[in-house]
């Protein structure tokens, strides 16, 4: 990967500064959204929770972009051979699977707890209080 080009690495440094600029710009964008997010529901004429979902999706997309630039440019993975990149990236399929599974289950646990408390029972996970 060491590419000592004739220009003494000036090209590489340019790419580094460009990546740094992109990362900073994406972070600034995230901040702008974080500070203005409570106005979106009114501006777009949608309800509060839809706006919140949209904001979360935007944050996640921006985060993935930032992660891409760090891994591809700073960690140089884009310039390694394809097989190495695949060996490192493919296992993260399991993380996506865990992510989907746990978030769905998380909603289920909570709603179970809420339901049982509405029926005035103790928590399923709680030992029964004997009076």
């Amino acid at each position: 990967m060491a590419t000592t080009t004739g220009d003494g690495g000036a090209e590489t440094r340019k790419a580094i500064y460009r990546t740094a600029l992109i990362l900073t710009a994406l972070t600034v964008l995230e901040f702008i959204i974080a500070f203005t997010k409570h106005t979106y529901a009114g501006i777009l004429g949608i309800n509060e929770s839809t706006a919140q979902t949209l904001v979360v999706i935007t944050f996640v997309i921006l985060t993935i972009f930032k992660a891409f630039y760090i891994v591809a440019e700073f960690m140089h993975l884009k310039h390694e051979i394809r097989k190495l990149a695949l060996t490192i990236l493919v296992p993260f399929i399991f993380i996506v699977w865990l992510l989907i599974g746990m978030i769905l289950e998380g909603g289920y646990w909570g709603s179970q707890d809420a339901k049982s408390s509405m029926n005035n029972q103790t928590y399923p996970s709680e030992e029964v209080f004997v009076g």
Binding site: L98, M102, E105, G106, G107, W109, G110
Partner: peptide
């Protein structure tokens, strides 16, 4: 780190749906 962050997500979602 992924496992920790996913645990955060799961506990958060369960707390919120619990009220």
């Amino acid at each position: 780190f992924s496992a920790l962050l996913i645990a955060y997500g799961a506990l958060r979602v369960s707390s919120v749906s619990e009220g």
